[in-house]
Amino acid sequence: MAQHQVNYLKDGGLPVALTTIDKVVNWGRSNSIWALTYGLACCGIEMMASGASRYDFDRFGTIFRASPRQAELMIVAGTLTKKHAEFIRRLYDQMTEPKWVISMGSCANTGGMFNTYATVQGVDRVIPVDLYLPGCAPRPETLQYAVMMLQQKIRKEPASRAQKPKRLM
């Protein structure tokens, strides 16, 4: 058995840390982002791949939840069609504050290659978006980077309840 002897006076001080509520709350929030399984099209497959064995997403505390009530991050992975648009808005409204949205892939960003009658030209016409991921389809590494960027963004935000919900308009 290894003996762990920590000299608190020498190695990094006493196990007491002083911080602000903002930081503690944001530390918790940013390290346990639960994402809604919202695979719409091809990007959804890459989203699954990021969650699977090779690109283990659980390392980031990102766990996919099927219910919007338990999720705080919506990864819009794939083409949003006009028929589906009302559902994405409803699911977004069902998520609890604070909530964030990553628009994954060109289709979700701008409509991408599907410049047709049936696709919404960017999910930001329907819900407010925090991060746009380019690529068709973005690799799992890209999604991981996006989640890391989102963590940084969350850590920067004030965590108080007075923060205003994001508005599309």
Partner: peptide, 16 residues
């Protein structure tokens, strides 16, 4: 047309 008509262009905005 490929990119839809007036109705298609505003469909999701009108609906939501």
């Amino acid at each position: 047309p490929l990119q839809g008509d007036e109705f298609a262009a505003w469909y999701e905005v009108d609906k939501i």
